[in-house]
Design a protein around this nucleic acid. Structure first.
Lengths: 358, 358
DNA sequence: CGTCTTTGCTAAACTGTTTCAACAAGTGTG
DNA sequence: CACACTTGTTGAAACAGTTTAGCAAAGACG
């Protein structure tokens, strides 16, 4: 008999929609808040009749649980953070965009919200990446665009915070990851170029501190070795993962490697920059120089000429990382180390090597 | 004298970092939780000595306020949502990326977190865009990529939820907005083309339901009228804001408008698609056809030829929208209608019209 | 010396949920 | 008929903060 009828302070809530609480529903239904809560959570100890009555009331009153209170009580926020690197154009990057797309779609389906964070130096120095857990902003974090120098990734493991490295791989840390098969992708690209008769193949890559980039580089050397080619020091150039970098790298290659007939770039942006540079130098793609990219961004099909590239299942990588992260949050014990397959997409930036075709 | 010494249940928190609470600090300092709370919130009624002592203790114990509890009590979450349109590549879009970049940077500086949402049909049908307020996920929302058909934008005003339309403008709704000066941008582009001697200028635009696109279209007609040119029906084609659309639109223009010497595209993606198509048709850019874009995405400087375009201050638009939204959350009464200036960036996709230069 | 004000702090109410112990009523069993 | 078990529900504690009313003690003043 609702003994607790003491006046609730009238909500001083200027202009904001007055929200109904569990209490309001309970009072209206003349039951305790515990009962309403149990109905909403499908507790089987509530009679069918009461459950139905209250469900209708909840519907009619438009009750929405306050998820701050829910999270406070349940210790789960149902929010995960996406950590992006502190690059000026990180959000405007098609590569990250594709991964985030997969993350968000999966998150939505699993009832999770996605929060955006950038791994800026001061953010990390203040240990904010751990604080977002301690302060209960998130249940887990997905780390994009990481490299070996990002030692902060290890903090998550040490602090017991669910975290996942997306599309990269740390050697000396047991942190979970979901990654594309860069090695196999590089093999396919090199096989294809070699098949077309190319031997003097330049590699534009970046950041040796990125494991996946190292895989590509090693595969490049291994594949050339298979056909008896020993690349010179000038054959591998850093392109910083940007169009500008790719363009500069291509210039360096054209300068220092006479007779070069093909360029393999570690991502599409560098490939596009490189193509641009080759064309600027008055040479033709693919007649004089073939170019192969890596990523298969949507854009790759709309440059001139269209770009032959390795397709990475970035959307799928994002979705799977999200799924596995949620499992980890819910207590999964086994480590996650998923590798997703890649494939070659042939377009118009590649052709038979000149020495062969002529 | 801590009368409330009843045992707190031992935290059943397997593996997770044990977090210190206000209570823990209070107990250690032998004061009440209220005192600690007041110290942290800078309440002046606490003695300097106590404040200092507690601040040091807070530091030493590594206390971090639980923001779920804070938000529950204060009714502010310090989180805003960014609503993106339900396009497959919304996150991979450089246009949105640039705006989001500005939003996130500003949010970080103002102590806000950013949550990502996609305006999918079922999301809106379930009124989730209002629910995220009712359920206290966010204090405000920034709407990107909206158009006149998105009537849900009006729901925010009706429900008293702080919201802001970013880089667009609704005629019949008094919702706040921050927008680039599309009209002036289009004027600059048209002036420049006309200056170069172009008269037969095709327009690739999109979605008449987007106010800013309509502004561009109207300006295009007005500017042509100024020089006595009446564009035919075939001169204006829809390009759907995509590379593919731009390419198709360019084909249509080349087909149906004999003697066309310039194309003005409503965004850079369509411009790039159009350039690609023109080149594919065996014509040269800019010698045969000049192309002007709109946006000045980072990418525009790395296509071949580099793209002449209108620079939009998208980063700044995002940052300002965020700032104004926070003001609105904190009770700002006056409507926000900001317009940010644009400017022309001349690159290599434009040249004198053929009839003039020859 | 008694009253008033200021200072410094505390108890308790409040935010809105989940969950558990307990209890009344009804049913089944020996 | 007594006892145990099941069913349906409730009260209260817990989550972790903020905020307000109010209580002592100390200083100012008539």
């Amino acid at each position: 008999m609702l003994t607790d009828l003491k006046q609730r302070r009238v909500r001083a809530n200027p202009g904001r929609a007055s929200v109904v609480s569990l209490r309001d529903v309970a009072k209206e239904a003349k039951v305790s808040v515990a009962t309403v809560s149990m109905v909403l959570n499908g507790n089987s100890r509530i009679s069918r009749a009461t459950a139905l009555r209250i469900q209708r009331l909840v519907e009619r009153m438009g009750y929405q649980p306050n998820r701050l209170a829910q999270s406070l009580s349940s210790r789960y926020t149902n929010v995960v953070a996406v950590m992006l690197p502190a690059l000026r154009h990180a959000f405007a990057d098609a590569y990250f965009g594709e991964v985030i797309s997969g993350i968000c779609d999966k998150a939505g389906k699993m009832g999770y919200k996605v929060m955006l964070e950038q791994a800026k130096p001061e953010f990390l120095k203040e240990k904010q990446h751990i604080r977002i857990f301690e302060r209960r902003y998130v249940d887990g974090v997905l780390c994009l665009g990481t490299n070996d120098r990002h030692r902060w990734v290890e903090d998550f493991g040490a602090a017991g915070c669910p975290a996942m490295v997306v599309d990269n791989h740390f050697d000396h840390t047991r942190i979970d990851h979901v990654v594309c098969d860069y090695r196999s992708g590089a093999e396919q690209a090199m096989n294809y170029l070699i098949q077309l008769g190319h031997q003097k193949i330049g590699l534009i890559t970046a950041a040796p501190e990125i494991k996946t980039a190292r895989s590509v580089r090693e595969t490049y050397r291994a594949k050339l070795a298979e056909v008896g080619v020993e690349p010179g020091d000038d054959w591998v150039v850093d392109g910083e993962f940007t169009e500008e970098g790719g363009a500069d790298a291509a210039r360096s290659l054209m300068d220092k490697v006479p007779g070069l007939t093909a360029i393999f770039a570690g991502n599409d942006k560098m490939a596009i920059g490189a193509m641009h540079q080759v064309l600027t130098l008055g040479l033709r793609v693919p007649q004089d120089v073939s170019v192969v990219g890596f990523d298969d961004l949507q854009h790759a099909a709309f440059v001139n000429p269209t770009l032959t590239t390795i397709h990475l299942p970035l959307y799928e990588v994002g979705a799977m990382a999200m799924e596995r992260l949620i499992e980890r949050i819910h207590g999964r014990a086994e480590p996650v180390h998923e590798v997703l397959p890649t494939h070659l997409v042939v377009r118009n930036s590649t052709a038979m090597a000149k020495s062969v075709s002529s």
